[in-house]
Amino acid sequence: MTDAIDAHAHLGSGFRPWRTDDLAADLVSTAADSGIGRTLVSTLGTRSLLAHPGPDDLRAANELTAAAVARFPDRLAGVVYLSPEHPRASLDELDRHVADGPFVGVKLWIAMRADDVRLDPLVARMCELGVPLLQHAWYKTVDGTPDESTPADVASLARRHPSLRIQMAHLGGAGKRGVADIAPHPNIVVDTSGGDPVLGEVDHAVAELGAERVVFGSDAPIRDPATALAKVLGSQLSERDRRLVLRENALRLYRRLSPA
């Protein structure tokens, strides 16, 4: 497989040092070495990871993503970072980078739970533009935050907005409980990121959701793309299902993403 699509990776300086000081170039070269053709990237802060970014923080983060995409247009695709705490600024960023720019989706992190109705103005605009939402979710017993979404919150959002296409992040953080939460909602897919490879994790998600509802995501640079790929390549999936997970589902979800 030489054309996999990594549907979940990050830029910014809030991560521990990786290969070099040029994270965008490192993502591109590491992905190429691993057989990944395209990587979808968002920036959660230019100097640190910002759980509650302000309008200026959002603009700076998305400009960093835009600059990286402009450098590597055939290898990187942008996902715009928004915050429902700042709806006007977020709508402006959505229009700037999606309606009037090349970005292919939206990223929401931990500023607000996914079941909060204050997301609705952003969701309405996402649906108008036809772009999906990459929503962070995790079941945590320690180190969680009050505004961090669980898979149950994502299921609530999907139930309220059945036309919104949602990529729920972190199969490794959702576990079997999270898979069960989202199973009734066909507008949700789950990505394979979150934690180290666990035997049977991807196989279980495919068995419960169908191969069309699981997409490959590494969460790089938090996880090396090669380690993340091991979750899928070490599964018992058929070649057809493996290709759906590694490539075809991302193209179907991110309709603005070029298949080249």
Rank of each mutant, 00 (worst) to 15 (best):
residue 37 G to A: 15
residue 29 S to W: 11
residue 22 D to I: 02
residue 76 L to K: 00
residue 188 I to P: 00
residue 27 L to D: 12
residue 179 V to Y: 09
residue 172 G to Q: 07
residue 246 L to T: 03
residue 39 T to A: 12
residue 112 M to A: 10
residue 43 T to P: 04
residue 79 V to N: 00
residue 125 R to F: 11
residue 159 R to F: 09
residue 5 I to K: 02
residue 199 L to V: 10
residue 143 D to I: 12
residue 163 S to Y: 03
residue 193 S to C: 11
residue 10 H to E: 12
residue 111 A to D: 15
residue 233 L to M: 08
residue 61 A to E: 04
residue 165 R to N: 02
residue 105 G to I: 09
residue 186 P to D: 11
residue 197 P to N: 13
residue 229 L to E: 13
residue 183 A to I: 01
residue 12 G to H: 12
residue 108 L to C: 07
residue 93 E to A: 14
residue 119 L to N: 12
residue 19 R to W: 11
residue 14 G to H: 13
residue 94 L to A: 04
residue 125 R to Q: 04
residue 244 L to R: 12
residue 13 S to N: 15
residue 173 G to H: 08
residue 65 T to F: 00
residue 91 L to M: 08
residue 108 L to I: 06
residue 13 S to D: 15
residue 214 V to P: 00
residue 166 I to R: 00
residue 13 S to K: 15
residue 91 L to V: 12
residue 187 N to H: 04
residue 253 L to W: 01
residue 59 R to M: 04
residue 7 A to F: 07
residue 91 L to P: 07
residue 145 T to I: 15
residue 4 A to C: 09
residue 116 D to G: 02
residue 76 L to F: 03
residue 67 A to D: 13
residue 15 F to S: 13
residue 204 H to A: 08
residue 79 V to M: 09
residue 96 R to G: 02
residue 221 P to R: 05
residue 95 D to P: 10
residue 104 V to L: 07
residue 38 R to D: 08
residue 26 D to K: 05
residue 35 G to S: 10
residue 234 G to P: 05
residue 6 D to A: 12
residue 52 H to N: 08
residue 191 D to A: 09
residue 100 D to P: 02
residue 57 D to C: 14
residue 241 D to A: 06
residue 227 T to Q: 15
residue 226 A to L: 11
residue 103 F to Q: 02
residue 136 H to I: 11
residue 92 D to P: 01
residue 260 A to P: 02
residue 103 F to R: 01
residue 66 A to S: 13
residue 115 D to M: 01
residue 156 S to Y: 06
residue 54 G to E: 15
residue 128 E to D: 14
residue 199 L to H: 09
residue 219 D to Y: 05
residue 196 D to G: 03
residue 112 M to G: 06
residue 130 G to R: 02
residue 229 L to I: 10
residue 183 A to K: 07
residue 143 D to W: 15
residue 60 A to N: 05
residue 18 W to G: 12
residue 239 E to T: 09
residue 17 P to F: 14
residue 192 T to I: 04
residue 52 H to Y: 14
residue 132 P to D: 02
residue 74 D to P: 00
residue 2 T to Y: 01
residue 4 A to S: 03
residue 5 I to Q: 06
residue 246 L to E: 06
residue 212 E to P: 00
residue 174 A to Q: 04
residue 237 L to G: 04
residue 112 M to Y: 07
residue 256 R to V: 10
residue 213 R to M: 11
residue 78 G to L: 01
residue 152 A to K: 00
residue 83 S to I: 07
residue 93 E to P: 06
residue 25 A to P: 07
residue 151 P to E: 06
residue 223 R to Y: 10
residue 207 A to W: 14
residue 135 Q to N: 11
residue 225 P to G: 11
residue 231 K to Q: 14
residue 54 G to S: 05
residue 26 D to G: 03
residue 149 S to P: 12
residue 157 L to E: 02
residue 229 L to V: 14
residue 33 D to Y: 05
residue 215 V to K: 00
residue 108 L to N: 01
residue 18 W to A: 12
residue 249 N to A: 07
residue 162 P to S: 01
residue 85 E to K: 10
